[in-house]
């Protein structure tokens, strides 16, 4: 692997250069909060704040996605071939891990289907990640093996050092970038690499979360097999009672990939569009059949299904944990339902 360094000033210049050839999406501070957005000026990039509430998901699998339009029997598809390349800058290791998950979900190789809308955007995007030095109270990536430092999934990965950034290059696209703009980069010294290792070691203590052994959680869930044999109904009932049906944990989750398809047409059905929108397995209508039969008729079972999906089914289907430890679901929850706490309680069962 190529490992380089770049000074802060040069990083800004580098991004400024990239802006000529690609749309740059980065964390920015907006009125209302930090978010990922296309930047117009490099000065907008927010290097210091924690992870934005919105993840990178929306740039590959947006909340609403127009699949095609129709006008009096003529269809037009929206997948734009001429789209400018996009560089997603400053995404955190947890979000990189989530992208690995959704890559698998949306591809045939892992038993899914090839989603053209997802892959069009995904292939057109270069990922420049940044390792996390300031975990928030809600973060528990270290339990999920997704952070605070990324192992894979990026084109370029930055680590903020004392005087510069360490740059790890993990793809041919990344290599091309650093060679095109080689003036900005210098080779990393052993001291630089060591500095990164020390930073990572120091981070261990900064996570306030309880230690959970997710392997144990997985085996508890396997033993239970959704039967209630290990984890009693009351446990799920208590969590279900707290849930206020907002769907926020699904919407905000970087690995939640469920969607619905709907047609929106004018009253004469002459003009309209087919779109897909994010869906949530917390809703009763999510699995209600035409007959009215519904395996998720009650809240307890829906909540249970969600945690089984995140902590067990994801591993069976995508061979990856469905939770990356970003803590967003806990942040948007009206009643503080915290998946890491749920996992630790399952472990004790």
């Amino acid at each position: 692997m190529i490992i380089l360094t770049i000074e802060r000033e040069n990083l800004l210049k580098f991004l400024d250069e990239l802006k000529r050839e690609a749309e740059i999406v980065a964390p920015v501070q907006r009125l209302g909060g930090a978010t990922f957005a296309e930047i117009k000026d490099i000065s907008e990039v927010n290097f210091l704040e924690g992870n934005p509430l919105s993840s990178a998901k929306q740039f590959f699998f947006p909340q609403t996605d127009e699949l095609f339009q129709f006008r009096k029997g003529v269809f037009s598809f929206k997948v734009e071939a001429k789209r400018k390349r996009r560089i997603l800058f400053g995404i955190r290791p947890c979000d990189l891990a989530a992208l690995e998950f959704s890559d698998r979900f949306f591809s045939r190789e892992h038993g899914g289907y090839e989603d053209i809308y997802y892959w069009f955007r995904r292939r057109n995007t270069i990922l420049i990640g940044i390792n996390c030095l300031r975990p928030e109270e809600s973060c528990f990536c270290f339990l999920c093996g997704s952070g605070p430092f990324a192992r894979r999934g990026y084109d370029l990965q930055l680590t903020p050092l004392e005087n510069s950034y360490l740059v790890e290059v993990a793809s041919s696209q990344g290599e091309k970038l650093v060679s095109t703009y080689s003036d900005f980069f210098s080779p990393a010294s052993p001291g630089d690499k060591r500095e990164k290792e020390i930073l990572e070691e120091k981070l261990e203590g900064k996570f306030s979360h309880k230690r959970v052994e997710l392997k144990k959680v997985t085996s508890r869930l396997l033993e239970d097999g959704f039967s209630g044999a290990v984890i009693e109904n009351e446990f799920w009932e208590e969590i279900g009672n707290r849930c206020l049906d907002c769907g926020g944990c699904n919407y905000i989750c970087p690995t939640c990939t469920c969607f619905s398809i709907l047609d929106k047409a004018d009253r004469n059905i002459e003009v309209g569009e087919r779109m897909r929108i994010w869906d949530s397995c917390n809703f009763s209508g999510f699995t209600r059949m035409a007959s009215g039969a519904n395996p998720g008729a009650n809240k307890r079972d829906r909540i249970k299904r969600r945690f089984f999906c995140k902590l067990l089914y994801s591993q069976e289907n995508q061979s990856l944990l469905g939770c990356v430890g970003c803590g967003r679901c806990w942040k948007v929850c009206y009643t503080d339902i915290d998946i890491s706490k749920v996992a630790s309680e399952i472990q004790q069962k």
Binding site: G32, G33, A34, T35, P52, L53, P62, Q63, G248
Partner: peptide, 8 residues
């Protein structure tokens, strides 16, 4: 899109 405001 519709997103909540984290700073509100």
């Amino acid at each position: 899109e519709a997103f909540p405001s984290s700073d509100s």
